[in-house]
Amino acid sequence: MKILVCITYVPDTTSKIAFTEGDTKFDKSGVQFIIGPYDDYALARAVELKEAHSGTVTVLNVGEAETEPIIRKALAVGADDAIRVNAEPIDSFFVAKQIASVAKEGSYDMILMGRESIDFNGGMVHGMVGELLGLPSVSPVMTLEIEGNKAKMSREIEGGKEYLEVDMPFVAGCQEPIAEWKIPNMRGIMSARTKPLQVVEPVDSDKATVLDKYELPPSKGEIKMIDAENMEELVKLLKNDAKVL
């Protein structure tokens, strides 16, 4: 079984978000970058499936050289080899094109990734990759089991869960609780250093959207504290001031 796992390079979930250069660039100073949390779930499940069914896990990242530490981390938790497409991931369409181009070369049984990246939250790349490759795409996937050539999944829907089946190959955008995040152990970290990491140049792609600028939300006003004995006052405020009741 050949599995391709696509990972994003994103700011840690606790990062303070700020912009520079006239609000046109994300301010990376002091920011810790991690494997996208949803991608990390996909990676963990891929490693489990590989262990259960035998096969290989290839990690793919579209990013510049700065992303290599997180690629090594993915190798340390159990991926066998990695490919980095040497380009800034400018938008979903661009990234999807790069992934599809790599995937065409590898005849993978499944292409897994997170349901969305936590920087742009687009949730588009899995669908676009599926469309580019003519493969089914499913997202957001909460469980994934393989039986023979068939994948059995559950997908989160508003207020519930949908169970579905699809033959391999397919593309899936994953989320919890598909697997528990894996923490690399010393042996994994050592072996990751020598696992193959291939760097490829991007294929041409038009930019579909152009960033104008970033902005931060307006800051919250003062909090109003209400006496725990006086819930009538809270109800009054919610009714008359906030007008939400």
Binding site: G123, E131, T209
Partner: peptide, 24 residues
């Protein structure tokens, strides 16, 4: 509307009709 169905569907439509796409 963005939703567990609408969002992934719109990604595929964007390629079929060659449209630019923005979510959220």
């Amino acid at each position: 509307a963005n939703s567990s169905l609408g969002t992934p569907v719109s990604a595929r439509v964007a390629l079929k009709i060659e449209a630019s796409l923005v979510s959220n």
